[in-house]
Computed example of a mutant assay.
Amino acid sequence: MTKKQKNAVDKSSMGQRDQVRFWHAARFEEMECLAARFIDHHYPKHMHDTYSIGVIIAGAEEFHYKGQKYVAPAGSIAALDPHEAHDGYPEKSSGGFVYRMMYPSIDLMADIYRDLTGKDNLPFFSDVIYHDDQMAQRLLGLHTVLDQAHDSLEQDSAFTQVFSEMVANHSDKKYNLRAVGREGGPIALARQYLDDVYQDDVGLDDLAALTQLNRHYMIRAFKKEVGLTPHAYQTMRRVQVAKNKLARGEQVIDVAIDCGFYDQSHLNRVFKKYHGITPGQYRSQFGT
């Protein structure tokens, strides 16, 4: 029987030292995300109707999968295909394990594969355990973005880039990324659009439709032409407008709302990152 990962956790076998947190990434078909530390907990045999992809941060997890026993040590990536039975528990000498997991649906991964290759197919991960420090950090970064970021463009870009690179580099049918050509015209349209609607919650699909470029390729082409990713450019544009509004003496909370920031604290964090002072400090020093 397939299970949501939340339902696969047997709470009766969890000890006081075990910790687990689930949430759903709303933009991606309510994809389950998991952050956990297991010292006593053992997963019973179960399967998912989604992929299971994540990173072991500390310790080591042992599990049975496709008739074999695997050990995923700290720093490794585990990638399990849908509808495959597996269990999971701390490797005996490890003292437990800490990990972060994401459970993208078959449709989401098919869409990633189609965007990347132009073909209707599914990626599969037969090696199961992967040792790629850079990819592991990228997956952990995506996990954090899905947990904390508010901007659709940031979430969309991270999801598309990270899972596209996971498929291209580590799936059974590895794929050489298409070289980025000269895309000045389409990228100029995307840049102008972000200038015009800087305050809106733009998604990656909006830019892909506008430029008629595949999502992953469009991100790479935008960075080649502009020097920034679409989300980084959107953020820079919002900060520029916010700075001008603050210089005119507008209230910080109003500026945050008008410029598309989630709230005032969001503006504070981003503005200080760019200028070294808070919006309130900038307004006090330079506002008219």
Rank of each mutant, 00 (worst) to 15 (best):
M1D: 15
M1A: 15
K4H: 13
Q5C: 12
K6V: 14
K6W: 10
V9A: 05
S13P: 10
M14C: 14
Q16G: 15
D18R: 06
V20W: 06
W23C: 03
W23N: 04
W23V: 00
H24A: 13
R27Q: 09
E30H: 10
E32F: 04
L34V: 03
A35V: 09
A35G: 11
I39H: 11
Y43C: 06
H48W: 00
Y51L: 05
I53P: 00
I57F: 02
A60G: 08
E61M: 11
E62K: 07
E62T: 05
F63L: 03
F63M: 01
H64E: 04
K66I: 02
K66M: 11
G67M: 02
Q68R: 09
G75C: 07
S76I: 03
A79Y: 01
D81P: 02
P82L: 00
P82S: 07
E84W: 02
E84C: 13
H86Y: 05
D87Y: 06
E91R: 05
S93Q: 14
G95C: 12
G95N: 12
G96D: 12
G96E: 07
F97H: 07
F97N: 03
F97A: 05
R100K: 15
M102Q: 11
Y103S: 08
I106F: 05
D107V: 09
M109K: 06
A110C: 09
I112E: 00
R114K: 11
D115A: 01
G118D: 09
N121Y: 10
H131F: 14
D132V: 01
D133K: 15
Q134K: 14
M135F: 12
A136D: 07
Q137V: 10
Q137W: 09
R138Y: 15
L139W: 04
T144L: 09
L146C: 04
Q148N: 08
Q148C: 07
D151P: 10
S152A: 13
S152C: 09
F159N: 04
F163K: 08
E165N: 12
E165F: 02
M166N: 04
S171L: 05
D172N: 11
K173I: 00
K173A: 03
A179F: 04
G181Y: 11
E183L: 06
I187T: 02
Q192P: 02
L194G: 11
Q199M: 10
D200G: 07
D200W: 09
D201G: 05
D201V: 02
G203Y: 00
D205G: 10
D206Y: 00
L207N: 02
T211G: 06
Q212N: 09
L213W: 07
N214Q: 14
R215E: 14
R215N: 08
F222C: 12
V226Q: 14
G227I: 13
G227A: 12
G227F: 13
T229I: 05
P230E: 00
T235S: 15
R237Q: 11
V239S: 08
V241N: 03
N244L: 14
L246H: 08
A247S: 08
Q251A: 13
I253D: 13
D254N: 11
V255E: 04
C259W: 06
Q264D: 08
R269S: 11
F271D: 01
I277P: 05
P279F: 12
Q281A: 14
Q281H: 09
Y282D: 12
R283G: 01
G287M: 03
G287C: 03
